[in-house]
Design a protein around this nucleic acid. Structure first.
Lengths: 197, 197
DNA sequence: CCTATATTGGTACGGTTGCACCATATCTTA
DNA sequence: TAAGATATGGTGCAACCGTACCAATATAGG
């Protein structure tokens, strides 16, 4: 057999080029030739490692998500051995905000894929399976597991994400808004649970 | 002078074709030739009424926003002469949800423009001026004008919009979640304002 | 060493893109 | 009616697109 090459590494290298282009100009900028130039490899290599352009975009998205989940898990783990539920929840929510370049680019790329998510059935199915567990997790971390508050909390966080990406909202303000909601939801229970349930 | 033509009507007719294409396949599907075919006019006409493709996309967006604002104002006005603040607020928030085909298409198109909003400076400036007044309005409609709650309420609503567009959330559930938040924020004030301020 | 095969390179093709350009038609005003 | 501005139509061009195809290379197993 001929030279063995680390496929995973090469795919990741190419995928990173897709991310950069998609984040700055949308999916339409991620053409095969442009991605190849951005990655510094011959265009033919993209064909070899990903196949068609559709496969390239899908593959790049999958790698992005994998990286994102790993990063998120890492940050939650960094909270220590037995973290407070509130801290875990806060960490999970903050994962949705573009607080560093890594997260910013990731969310930017997700936005670029958004329209395709909605119209192309292949993508649509893939996304409709994951998120219920996320809402479940948030509800579990909330005192008394208030589902309505959990759902709106998550929605609010993704809303803040959008405003931050548009430059309408500072990181400090976004975090402050989330902390205010957490203050309320984790408030001492010596009164009738302010209408959240 | 020659035949006079209703420019505004023609531009709107063409813009509607842009919306349909952008809503179903993203901005990259809104090529000059495709838009022309969708609108049933020669491609040359797009050049005449909009100029370059960039101008076409910008013009189509502007018409979309104008239509959206008009529709929203109409629905608020339909509440009657002296509506309750809560009803006005609810109406404003529901305007962000894709509750009918008109709003659904409008928000879909906005998503298609999203990445460009973030990167192209021309668009970026245009969007950074409008929204503060919206948050102000919401805060004003809220009892005691709690700014933090107002901001998070708007963020939450746009978050629900995204989930609905992805088919993850039903209209009923989204409205229910908003109404729960309104229940809480408009709750009687016989106790110390549940930590919102 | 040698050969089978994983990997790379380069290119060519049919199709589409945005746009500039030229000619024509149509109608209002002078 | 003459004329000139407004509006329309069609075509051509250079650039780019995705991808199929063919050749060359390099290396691991025999």
């Amino acid at each position: 057999m001929p030279r063995q090459v680390d496929h995973e590494a090469r795919r990741r290298h190419i995928a990173a080029a897709v991310w950069r282009l998609a984040a700055s100009g949308g999916l339409e900028d991620a053409t095969i030739r442009r991605v190849a130039a951005e990655a510094g490899v011959p265009a033919r290599q993209l064909q070899y490692y990903f196949g068609t352009r559709e496969d390239l975009l899908l593959g790049a998205l999958e790698l992005l998500n994998r990286d994102g989940e790993a990063e998120a898990r890492e940050r939650v783990a960094a909270l220590g051995p037995e973290p407070e539920p509130r801290d875990v929840l806060r960490s999970v929510l903050l994962e949705f905000l573009p607080l560093d370049e890594s997260r910013r680019q990731r969310h930017l790329v997700h936005m670029a894929y958004f329209v395709r998510f909605m119209t192309e059935d292949a993508l649509r199915d893939r996304i409709r399976d994951a998120p219920p567990e996320l809402e479940d997790l948030i509800a579990m971390l909330l005192p008394e597991g208030r589902r309505d508050e959990a759902d709106f909390l998550l929605a609010g966080t993704t809303g803040l994400q959008g405003q931050m990406l548009l430059g309408q909202l500072s990181a400090e303000r976004a975090i402050e808004l989330i902390d205010r909601q957490l203050d309320r939801l984790f408030a001492p229970m010596d009164r009738p649970a302010d209408r959240g349930l």
